[in-house]
Design a protein around this nucleic acid. Structure first.
Lengths: 254, 254
DNA sequence: CGTGCATTTGAGAAGAATCAATGCCCGTGG
DNA sequence: CCACGGGCATTGATTCTTCTCAAATGCACG
């Protein structure tokens, strides 16, 4: 069920996030593809899953962008993750009695629902799948650590530059960006909710890093002009995955 | 090897974090206790494990407080987690080629080293252990989501109140706090590095929430005076764990 | 009874929020 | 085809929060 939605270029592979840590056999790949229900198309701004409800499933984002956010009564919210094509969504709240965050479509999205039971069945019967899910949960913790470090940082311009680099790298990995260019479908309101700053200041910070010659905007297109100095300015670290996981997989199950 | 260090009151159980999601058989408990090496005692400020080194192990914190932090050349740092007794430390970086964060002793600590191989062996041979580790990684993601939401929030006083509530709840769960009181061994510098604010402002924010009647300080002792209004003020949410994980554990491994 | 570290307090500067007005793009309907 | 409206982005002016720098106080420990 989890096939390419047909809209993306050939390089996109909806399961790329699953294969980051473990390479699967063809039959395992087939089982992973069978995890999700029939893909659903939702328009921008749809609530995919609310916060404070009982968790019953995960979602795979097959196309488009989505957000995880924690929302307050007064309308404030913190976006805790921008999900890109291939991402598994909704897993953190599976540990809780009630979901902690809302999943919202930032663009038109194609998502596939994964019932917890089906996930659990694969987790229990396929140790390599369990290992991959454990490692990708740890990788998501690192992503949150970096998000927290970004937001705790003093200057807004740094925060914004760091976000742009993060998105560029993740889009590249998903096959949705190349040559330092990508399309950014976020409003400045949404960017503000990611970085914890006001919309007005997002606009000013964009101008600031543009004036510094770090990147250029043209409509919704972003072009990073100088990756090296942008990384230094944003104090941004690339975080390559470990290359070997012998310690976790392919143990003798005696 | 992972026994009570002898210093804590009888209620403390160094494996309480492992048992949050799955109840283990006595023989499984024995295997989990055998995970760690002989406990080591380290003084305050010791670096337990540096950032930007190759990950080779996890750690269990048996006694004392420790921090995970991301550090920059100029001395700035973001503390991304305060570890309390019972916590498993260092797991996020296991997915990376180089560790993302440093582990530092905030007080005198007792830690036990868990080589990755020994962890992986148990993960592969004990599906219930693998499930517990997957769920606790997801729970840690929620903790980071809450930390990010806290730091992204506008007012410093709110951030501080939220941190105090978080620590109180976690200390209670570890059996290290009761009756709305606990001992806080953090300097205001460290609190500032958790919340992304300056030391001076930590002092002022403490005064502010004290003047509001939310809590009282006496030396390093903190007493929460009004849990209800403190929670409202800090917009803090208790996050109870789900009660059933049938979907993940005890599947037929045919 | 110093000495060093942490905290508190004050004053001024910088950064970001808020409020408000304007401009721009795009789709809709007259 | 053009006028209109809505959503989003930009810019200016002002206010508020927080930072920085500096000094003073308090506190623990030898």
């Amino acid at each position: 069920m989890l096939r390419d939605s047909g809209k993306s270029p050939g390089s996109f592979e909806p399961l790329h996030r699953f294969k980051e840590y473990v390479s699967f056999t063809p039959s395992e790949v087939k089982e992973i593809q069978a995890l999700g229900d029939k893909p659903i198309v939702l328009p921008r701004s749809s609530v995919i899953r609310e916060q404070e409800v009982i968790p019953t499933c995960f979602f795979i984002l097959l196309d488009g962008w989505a957000s995880s956010s924690v929302e307050f009564e007064n309308g404030d919210r913190q976006i805790t993750k921008v999900h890109l094509p291939g991402d598994l969504m909704g897993a953190p709240s599976a540990s809780l009695a009630q979901t902690a965050d809302s999943l919202t479509a930032l663009t038109r999205v194609v998502v596939s629902r994964i019932p917890l039971e089906r996930f659990g069945q694969l987790f229990a019967t396929r140790p390599r799948f369990a290992a991959a899910m454990f490692l990708s949960a740890q990788r998501e913790r690192v992503a949150l650590i970096d998000a927290l470090t970004r937001v705790g940082r003093t200057s807004s311009a740094e925060k914004l530059a760091s976000l742009m680099l993060d998105l560029y790298e993740r889009l590249s990995a998903a096959g949705c960006a190349q040559e330092l260019q990508f399309e950014l479908p976020l409003t400045q309101q949404e960017i503000g909710d990611i970085l914890g700053i006001s919309t007005v200041h997002v606009s000013r910070s964009f101008k600031e890093i543009e004036d510094l010659g770090l990147l250029k905007r043209a409509g919704r297109k972003i072009k990073i002009l100088d990756l090296r100095s942008a990384s230094v300015f944003a104090r941004w670290s690339h975080r390559p995955a470990a290359s070997k996981f012998d310690w976790l997989i392919d143990h003798d199950v005696s």
